[in-house]
Amino acid sequence: MPIDIDISHVARLARLALDDEQLERYRRQLGVILEHAARVQALDTEGVEPTGHPLGFTNAFRDDQVRPSLERDVVLAEAPDHRDGYFVVPPALEGP
């Protein structure tokens, strides 16, 4: 089953700036892998629930208690760019 992949759309969703040559190479490789992966479709899974936690437990919560945050100097020390306590990025093109 040949699989049709709109690779530039996928790369855009994944925020990866790839050139045409890279896109074409990944498209081909993904096609091969997906053809193998598509074997899952041969199994009858009618009425089968997806797996949750292997140990099947539920309700893991924490109490509503404040714990110390990180020092801001520590936080910003790893930032590629920061100013007046803020992280700085180039302007956004569009809203979320």
Partner: peptide, 20 residues
């Protein structure tokens, strides 16, 4: 008192990036 998934304080009008 604290955030949804961590223990940082929920508060309004503080210096930037102190409750992280």
């Amino acid at each position: 008192d604290s955030k949804m998934f961590c223990g940082c304080a929920v508060s309004f009008g503080e210096e930037p990036n102190v409750n992280v």
